[in-house]
């Protein structure tokens, strides 16, 4: 073990070294991501079960979702994952300015994602496509789904899955904003960038989950 007793100010008393602290944090984050995957997997199971029971309904209804909007969102999220990776790369090289710029870009992409999501949701709400009991579609493009059995289930699953995913995006934006502020104050360096790395891991997971959601809901 290193006996670096001229300890970094961020070293907590119960850790022996910065390395141990970083390893522990990263390991903890991976475990957290596992629980996130399991949380979503519960919903994927619900999706699969209903899809197996009513394949024709799900096939027909996936056309009710606009694959172009979903596709753009996929690209936007992929881009944001890339900028996160860049920001970690820059902070490892002590380039604080480039890190902050890339974090801000990430927030921007996340914002675009949420804006498109908002367009999709409001388009559905304005046609009476709500999750659950309030489901009462009308007007062109949605009206003919009014009497399709199990259509409410499809839209409920759609809203719950994308909704919880959206909450994750919002949380990520909040944490990135905090990192951008702290980063511009010079908190992070190649010695200590645990929060950047961990939030980056989280962000990649959010991205991956969307990559599963998009084809399952929009395409097939």
């Amino acid at each position: 073990m290193s006996t670096a007793k001229a300890a970094h100010p961020k070293l907590q008393h119960h850790f022996v070294s910065m390395e141990q602290q970083f390893d522990a944090s990263k390991f903890g984050m991976w475990l957290f991501l596992v629980t996130e995957i399991l949380l979503f997997s519960g919903m994927f199971v619900a999706y699969t079960v209903y899809r197996v029971w009513h394949p024709e309904v799900f096939e027909a209804l996936s056309t009710a979702l606009d694959w172009r909007l979903g596709g753009v969102n996929t690209l936007v999220l992929l881009a944001s994952s890339f900028t996160v990776a860049l920001s970690i790369h820059h902070i490892q090289n002590d380039n604080q300015r480039a890190m902050v710029i890339n974090i801000l870009l990430t927030i921007l992409f996340a914002g675009v994602f949420m804006f498109i999501k908002y367009l999709e949701y409001s388009g559905k709400f304005s046609h009476g496509v709500f999750p659950g009991e309030a489901y009462a579609p009308f007007g062109d493009h949605y009206g003919h789904y009014a009497d399709v059995p199990y259509a409410p289930q499809f839209f409920s699953i759609y809203f719950v899955m994308t909704g919880i995913h959206g909450v994750h995006v919002l949380i990520g934006m909040g944490v990135f904003a905090w990192i951008a502020i702290k980063g511009s104050q010079g908190l992070f360096s190649s010695e200590y960038y645990t929060p950047v790395e961990l939030t980056g891991l989280y962000w990649h997971l959010v991205d991956i989950i969307w990559i599963f959601l998009f084809p399952l809901l929009y395409l097939i």
Binding site: L39, M43, P131, G132
Partner: peptide
């Protein structure tokens, strides 16, 4: 590994109660 699943189950039950998602 297990607790997230009861988490999502309870969440779905909650949405079922509040929104009536019908799962």
């Amino acid at each position: 590994l297990a607790t997230p699943v009861i988490g999502i189950t309870m969440l779905l039950l909650l949405l079922e109660k509040t929104l009536g998602i019908g799962i």
